[in-house]
């Protein structure tokens, strides 16, 4: 068996870590939302769209943190036992992509149940939360999965920064990143380009944005992370 696949299997050695935590956090978030909206039922207007919850984001946050942690704990473990950085990185991205697809499928199936039960009986759109992509197409698996993979790549990138330069390096990078984004925003305002960007965004379908364009930052983050990891010490 290929060494990349072996690294991938190491990530899945603990089922509790790979599947248990993300799914139980999602379950808790869902239960809390369901209980909250059910108890509020009579006090909220009945028309669709009145119930808004971002609870499904919880599993995305869990995956971001898991990816971040993997560059610290799993990296130190595997590279400490003489896996090369390249092999480790490939195996890690493979697992993160596979987990994104699995969780995307789970979210899609739950979305189908949600539609079939009229929003869990209380018109609660917990899973189907992206208005631009309403509908039951199986492509929704990707609508859930690709953004999750992008966040996983962000987690990997931030994890690598933390591995190389510690928490101080991470904060310094965050400050620099925010200042950089702020400068870009100021520049765009100064050049009066926001309407152009708005038009472009409006011209793209939700599907194209969430499954296509979002891959660009994912690839940039994954590539940048690898460049930094090549000199990391377990």
């Amino acid at each position: 068996m290929n060494r990349v696949l072996r690294v991938a299997r190491i990530h899945l050695t603990s089922w509790r870590g790979a599947f248990g935590w993300p799914l139980s956090i999602l379950a808790i978030s869902f239960t809390v939302n369901l209980a909250f909206f059910a108890s509020m039922g009579d006090n909220l207007p009945d028309q669709p769209g009145a119930h808004v919850t971002g609870g499904v984001v919880s599993i995305y946050v869990v995956q971001l943190i898991a990816a971040w942690q993997s560059m610290n704990q799993a990296f130190s473990f595997a590279v400490g036992l003489n896996v090369t950085r390249r092999t480790f990185y490939a195996g890690t991205l493979l697992v993160l992509a596979a987990l994104s697809l699995v969780f995307g499928l789970v979210l899609y199936l739950l979305e189908l149940v949600e539609h079939a039960t009229g929003g869990w009986g209380i018109q609660l759109p917990f899973f189907d939360m992206v208005p631009a992509t309403h509908g039951n197409s199986p492509l929704h698996v990707l609508v859930y999965a690709v953004p999750m993979f992008m966040l996983s790549c962000l987690g990997v990138f931030l994890g690598t920064i933390t591995k190389r330069w510690g928490v101080n390096g991470f904060f310094a990078f965050t400050v620099l990143g925010l200042v950089g984004l702020g400068l870009v925003a100021i520049l765009l305002s100064w050049l009066d380009r926001w309407p152009t960007i708005g038009h472009w965004l409006a011209g793209q379908s939700g599907l194209a944005l969430l499954t296509g364009w979002i891959l660009i930052p994912a690839v940039l983050l994954a590539g940048g992370g690898y460049g930094l990891l090549r000199r990391a010490i377990p």
Binding site: T13, S14, R16, G17, Q69, Q73, A74, S76, F77, G80, L81, N82, P234
Partner: peptide
């Protein structure tokens, strides 16, 4: 290479 400071993932 087994070192005294070898790390293991927390969930392991």
């Amino acid at each position: 290479f087994v070192k005294e400071s070898q790390r293991y993932p927390d969930v392991f």
